[in-house]
Design a protein around this nucleic acid. Structure first.
Lengths: 120, 120
DNA sequence: CAAACCTTGACACAAGCTTGATAAGGTTGG
DNA sequence: CCAACCTTATCAAGCTTGTGTCAAGGTTTG
């Protein structure tokens, strides 16, 4: 039997039981549950909890940052929208009037966001 | 001349001047500057500012979230570390003792984090 | 069955983020 | 040269995050 209860997992990983529940609530490490609802931390969860501490300390992140990374992985639409926004905006070719270029950019971003076009 | 001052850009994008400075400080939209230091918002910046509002509203994000996405793009080490952490931890094969598997996982994560191995 | 766990929920507080307001001073254009 | 901008810096209110503690109640086990 290699599943630990929350206090045992806390002891082993350095997080407090309170924080283990918090970390679960923001979707970072989800232990399985016993029949009666007790959290059960297996080796995989314990490892993720340990490396999580290193990750936060090494890059000075908050739990919310890692939670956002999880969201990025789980929501493809979100990922696409962010990537679209992050793209360096295309340079406007000299011969294209500003108004037209703007409309094109706008439409592109709305496609990426999965939204209806302006006039629809 | 299609570059706007901060108050004009605020009017056009719906952000307050205060927020435009804040958005610049967290690295999301960086206007160029005039000789004397005035911020100059061109069409590209204005477009990014408008789509930023949509992005935040559509996916219920904060500026910090998008800022973190920018960090992810700019810091390859960070990206690798996060991706490494997000990988579903490998199932431990039945015939590998737990202690050994744990050490291997640990080493893997340390590689990903660019850290020295435990005993070094 | 009682001690020692576990659960969820709530209250609390420090630290940080978000946002506005305001001050002291430089730039610009009529 | 003065009004109307711009700059940076600071104070402050309100919200979010991270964390502890405690209460009321279910589970497990000697």
């Amino acid at each position: 039997m290699d599943a630990l209860t929350i206090h045992e997992a806390a002891e082993v990983t350095g997080w407090s039981p309170r924080m283990l529940r918090y970390i679960e609530r923001i979707g970072l490490v989800r232990p399985s549950r016993s029949g009666s609802g007790y959290r059960l931390y297996g080796p995989a969860e314990l490892q993720r909890l340990r490396t999580l501490r290193e990750l936060l300390a090494t890059y000075d992140l908050g739990l919310g940052d890692v939670g956002f990374a999880v969201r990025l992985r789980r929501e493809p639409g979100l990922r696409a929208a962010i990537e679209g926004w992050l793209e360096a905006p295309a340079e406007r070719p000299e011969h294209v009037p500003a108004a037209e270029w703007l409309a094109w950019e706008q439409e592109k971003h709305q496609r990426l966001l999965g939204l209806a076009p302006v006039g629809a």
